[in-house]
Design a protein around this nucleic acid. Structure first.
Length: 839
RNA sequence: GGGGGCGUGGCGGAACGGUAGACGCGACGGUCUCAAACACCGUUGAGGGCAACCUCGUGUGGGUUCGACUCCCACCGCCCCCACCA
């Protein structure tokens, strides 16, 4: 520790102060967390509460932006706060380092992606350090580290063993210019995010993780996530999209093919007047083979395949389809209904085939109108005749009609009744459909973790044995995608031998989606350098689940759902003892500037570095949290940040003149008995501690916490300027209030507060206990009571604390202002809220 | 089409059924300065009054309550997520 020098420079110079304290924190490893398995050494588990405080790791695309600053500042406030409350805090940092942007930069500049990425990481790390975050830098990792992706591959193999990772053919997004598949999130309005080309659907063999196997549990376990924003839970529920219905099997009229459909309206089965297949449905070619309709149907299927995705899925698009010439038999009534192919039927939801009930489904109704197909009412709204014509689809409630055994039931009764009947006849069953799709993790890209399998002519797809991991990403010269991953061109890499039979084999050349990396990185932080396992059960079980996770709401679905899925798989495999990774989640709002999201292309970026240079890191940290509620979007204000710098200057001036060699204790109430101004100031300090503690710990309301500290500074400054706090007792109260300001301010502005704390005679601010509240000071002997008449404020009274309700009411009635209003009128009712008001 | 959220001064926002507008920005006035900028001090919801004070005010209209920015219903206006999901 540097020797105590309690003279404070006259002017606050953030650059000097920040450099000084950052160096001290580094030298002392101030924010190193135990227990971490750094070298496989067993940890000692402290007998204190723990807090794993985690912010979503940055994607190192270049520079840290204001969103990062806000995100990491929030996490840092929580980390400091819990640390000073005596909790064991773990606050790590890493980089989501694989992925497209680095690869694109490589293609553009000719520099290898690894080099680009390492350069960007160094840059972001420097920025994070300049902002003074209390990160345990010993656990820093990048997902592109061999020591990390080796274990990503290991996790993939565990899923492969369990059948949760599988290779199968599917329709995927394909960019014809970039010659690669794209993730859904890389398709913007049907176009490739890189080149703007309209994306096509292609049938390709791809690797999927069977997240759909976990759909129900992902839904059920949400009930335990009580500390997640309702909005995020709702989004996940909608994304998983559970719907109850029935699977019903239709049969072609020649009896050859059985075609199951999924429907949420089995009660309308008798209203099915035609049958639809998705263009990609595998039976389509067989059904039309050799028929006169074959040419037309084949052409329609080809057009559908070529149509870009945005177009094909546009709701307002007119319904189109072609008749196959074939019929299927409706199992409930034996009717033969025509089979059409229509592109509004999606292959990857349900079974890719539907029964069409035009009377009670808007889309089917539109299709029936377009092609002049029959419409039959099977649900009748109250008061409506069973044969009333259907003018528009009626998807609502009503009584079942024209439906044999179901007639007379209402919709809710008919659903289970028909399901039971179908099950008895062996024609179907009640079932549940999910909107959630399996997770396509294949990427025909270079910069990702290679999928650790080989393809053997004799043995098929074979896992790379654990002891041969990692499958290292090979060096290549050309990163441009050519329809296959660039690593396919590395013959040394591709040519290998089969681990099972020893014969010649070829390596898989797809790499993994980067969301795989971010689905488990929070586990690896607990053992960042461990070379014998991905992590150690004892350690992850100590730290996890994450106590506070913070990040952007844009990850509400994908990342958060994938990470939950991974955790459940690991739980089932016995590698971890918890089924949910993030106990408490906070999603922050975005920062806008000049009315738009900050972006380089719009040229409306406010660079964090520039703000640190101009105002200091502490000012920037204060401002990003002061802008408004942390969960809300906020507009950056060039003037607003100046206000926070003025605030720190004001705190600096408040401390100046009060330097000393030692901190002081809270004054006693007796000592302040005859000093009302001093007493009021100490009271304010206590109230501020109470509010700031609640705002940070319970409410995640940082802007009001900062406001509260500002109020205390204003009160203290004013009391001193007015000479209200003179003499021993007054000076004592002022210094106590000042000390409290610095102590609370620390979590937001750690550098300045550390410096000021030292000037006041304190030592390591970051381990100083969080101030407690002396309730005795919050209790008051005199209280301001509001007096209302008919709900309107008429007067305020000073009354002694603990005065009986009747006495308070009597005093209220005696008030001249109240008399003026109630004069001559009867008082019907008196309401007295203790210590609050009289009505 | 389905789901979720939000409407408070000139602006960001505070008030978790009990004195609406804390805190900050901006604006205005003052001090400092030859001057300006900075900084500091003060005023700042609207209308009225010389005043102390009074009246009106939380998108609109109803309701519950002694009392509603807050709870309930309807409407208007914005924002976000999902979307031919059968």
């Amino acid at each position: 520790m540097t020797p105590v020098d309690s003279t404070l420079p006259e002017r606050y110079d953030p650059q000097a102060v920040e450099a000084k304290w950052q160096a001290i924190w580094d030298a002392e490893e101030a924010f190193r967390a135990e227990p971490i398995s750094r070298d496989g050494v067993p940890p000692s588990v402290p007998d204190r509460p723990k807090a794993y405080v985690l912010e979503m790791l940055p994607y190192p695309s270049g520079e840290a932006h204001m969103g990062h600053v806000k995100n990491y500042t929030m996490g840092d406030v929580v980390a400091h706060f819990r640390r000073r409350q005596g909790w064991v805090v773990f606050h790590p940092m890493g980089y989501d380092a694989f992925g497209l942007p680095a690869e694109n930069a490589a293609i553009r500049t000719g520099r290898p992606p690894e080099e680009v990425t390492r350069h960007n990481i160094a840059r972001i790390r420097e920025q994070l350090r300049r902002l003074g975050f209390s990160i345990d830098w010993q656990t820093e990792l990048a997902t592109c580290d061999v020591g990390f992706y080796r274990w990503t591959q290991w996790l993939f193999l565990r899923m492969f063993e369990k059948g949760l990772a599988e290779r199968r053919e599917a329709a995927v997004n394909w960019c014809p210019v970039d010659q690669t598949v794209l993730a859904n999130e890389q398709v913007i309005d049907g176009a490739c995010e890189r080149c703007g080309t309209q994306v096509e659907l292609r049938q390709l063999s791809q690797w999927f993780l069977r997240i759909t196997d976990y759909a129900q549990r992902l839904l059920d376990d949400m009930d335990t996530l009580v500390d997640w924003p309702e909005r995020v839970l709702t989004m996940q529920r909608n994304w998983i999209g559970r719907s109850e219905g029935a699977r019903v099997t239709f049969t072609t009229d020649d009896g050859v093919h059985e075609i199951p459909v999924f429907t949420t309206r089995p009660d309308t089965l008798f209203g099915a007047t035609f049958f639809l297949l998705a263009p990609e449905h595998p039976l389509v070619p067989q059904l039309v083979n050799g028929r006169p309709e074959a040419a037309v149907v084949t052409e329609y299927v080809r057009q559908a395949a070529r149509a870009d995705i945005a177009d094909r899925t546009a709701t307002e698009r007119p319904k189109t389809g072609v008749f196959t010439g074939r019929h299927v038999v409706n199992p409930v009534n034996g009717e033969h209904i025509p089979v059409w192919v229509a592109d509004y039927v999606l292959m990857d939801y349900g079974t890719g085939a539907i029964m069409a009930v035009p009377a009670h489904d808007e889309r089917d109704f539109a299709f029936a109108r377009a092609y002049d197909l029959p419409v039959r009412r099977v649900v009748s709204a109250p008061g409506m005749a069973a044969d009333a014509p259907v003018e528009a689809a009626e998807p609502g409630e009503g009584t079942i009609v024209n439906s044999g055994i179901l007639d007379g039931m209402d919709v809710a009764e008919a659903k289970p009744a028909i399901a039971t009947w179908l099950a008895d006849q062996g024609l179907g069953e009640a079932t549940v459909g999910f909107r959630l799709r399996d997770w396509l993790i294949s990427r025909q890209r270079y910069w990702g973790a290679p999928i650790p399998v080989v393809h053997c002519g004799a043995c098929g797809v074979v896992a790379v044995p654990d002891d041969e991991l990692p499958v290292l990403l090979p060096q290549v010269d050309d990163y441009a995608p050519k329809g296959m991953s660039p690593i396919a061109a590395a013959e040394d890499f591709v040519a290998t031998t089969c681990p099972t039979c020893g014969g010649p084999a070829r390596r898989e050349t797809d790499t993994m989606d980067t969301f795989v990396d971010s689905s488990w990185y929070f586990l690896r932080y607990t053992a960042p350098n461990l070379s014998t396992a991905a992590f150690e059960r004892e350690i992850v079980d100590y730290w996890l689940p994450v106590d506070q996770y913070i990040g952007g709401v844009e990850h509400a679905i994908l990342h958060l759902l994938y990470a939950r899925f991974f955790t459940k798989v690991l739980y089932d495999l016995g590698y971890v003892g918890f089924a949910e990774p993030f106990a408490r989640l906070f999603t922050q709002g975005m920062i806008y500037y000049q009315g738009a999201k900050m972006s380089k292309s719009k040229g409306n970026v406010v660079a964090p570095d520039e703000m640190v240079n101009r105002y200091g890191a502490d000012t920037l940290r204060l401002y990003v949290l002061f802008m408004g509620p942390a969960a809300d979007d906020a507009e950056w204000s060039d003037h607003g940040i100046e206000g926070q710098r003025r605030f720190l200057d004001r705190v600096w001036r408040l401390v100046a003149g009060q330097e000393g060699d030692a901190l002081i204790d809270r004054p006693t109430r007796d000592a302040l008995a005859d000093e009302p101004a001093a007493l009021a100031l100490v009271r304010k300090a206590e109230a501020t501690v109470a509010k700031v503690t609640d705002d940070i710990g319970e409410r995640f309301s940082f802007h009001t916490a900062i406001s509260a500290i500002q109020e205390l500074v204003n009160d203290a400054t004013k009391a001193r300027a007015e000479g209200a706090v003179t003499g021993t007792a007054g000076a004592h109260a002022l210094r106590f209030a000042t000390q409290t300001v610095v102590s609370l301010l620390f979590v937001f502005a750690p550098h300045a507060a550390s410096e000021l704390w030292q000037a006041l005679g304190g030592e390591r601010m970051w381990v100083a206990p969080w101030p407690d509240v002396d309730q005795a000071f919050l209790a008051r002997e005199s209280i301001t009571v509001a007096v209302q008449v008919n709900g309107k404020l008429r007067d305020t009274l000073q009354v002694p604390a603990g005065l009986s309700d009747a006495d308070v009411a009597a005093r209220a009635k005696a008030s001249a202002k109240v008399q003026a209003v109630i004069d001559g009128k009867d008082i019907r009712r008196e309401i007295v809220i203790a210590d609050r008001l009289v009505n």
